[in-house]
Amino acid sequence: MNELVHGALYGTLIATAILSTIAMGIWFERKFAGRMQQRLGPTIVGPAGLLQPFADIIKLLQKEDIVPRDADRGLFDLAPILAVVCSLGVAAVIPFSPSIIASDLDVGVLWVLGIGGLMVIPTFAAGWGSNNKFALLGAMRAIAQSVSYGVPLVLAVLVPVVLSGSLSISGIVAWQAQHHWFAVWPIVPGLPAFVIFFLAMLAESNRIPFDIPEAESELVAGITTEYTGAKFTLFYMAEYVHTLVGSALGAALFFGGWDGPFAPGLHWMVLKTLTLFVLIYWVRWSLLRFRADQLMRLCWTWLTPIGVALLLVSAAWVTFGGTN
């Protein structure tokens, strides 16, 4: 029972923290994107445009809610909620400090992979339920994409699991705190595995260069084509939550999570997470979109074999090389 209270308390706290971070994240992204294009980004609404995300959300919540006549009402309404739930759910097992964790699951990695994999269902429900050809095409692409990136994602995540011998994320972080960060040592399975994980996570959170289901220049707005106001807000938020939680996961699995000198664990975790978050937006505003077939070729012919090799290397490392 005590554990339940602990989980509920920290879960609420973490969810609130994430949701307020993404408001700032939206602002940051727009400013950052602006600077990268030698623009200013939002400046007028609030000091330095800081209130822009709030204006957006207030506006979006006031908009009329349109449901297309032939849409599948249930799926159409369910999809945005599911998207937020799935993207926030991953955060439940990520340790933000030795004590700040909503639920220290024994099989945290499986939970992360499973819930993360569920993201395809709201995407599909939105695309299919909208009864819109662009949304449907987006959904089809999302599914094809998820089949491709899933395998390398699992393989990359298994590398720290094998190296640390634990399926719990807090266990993995604790192991790294005692030994080395996996992105640093052993560098051969660690760093490439992080790169694969990063690419697969970009694909999972539909970020450029893998935002194929949303491809605005081809599919109007992809799966969100028919969504207005509040429901679109949920999708919009889910996207950012997913990116943020993915960054936190990367920080925990490969960069030692809350481990770091001088400062308390939470500071280090937040710093690492935000660094990865910025990296994702840097990539987003610099690169072009892959075609669906290019992504699939990349995943199946490059990332999957490399992932398998890395897994073998890490198994050999554990067997022959010792643990440090």
Partner: peptide, 22 residues
């Protein structure tokens, strides 16, 4: 059986469901 639960979600919902939808 939390391991089985995780595997169930990962394989059946993440994998089998997705393939069914495909």
């Amino acid at each position: 059986a939390s391991f089985l639960a995780g595997v169930q979600v990962l394989l059946y919902i993440g994998g089998v469901m997705t393939l069914t939808l495909v």
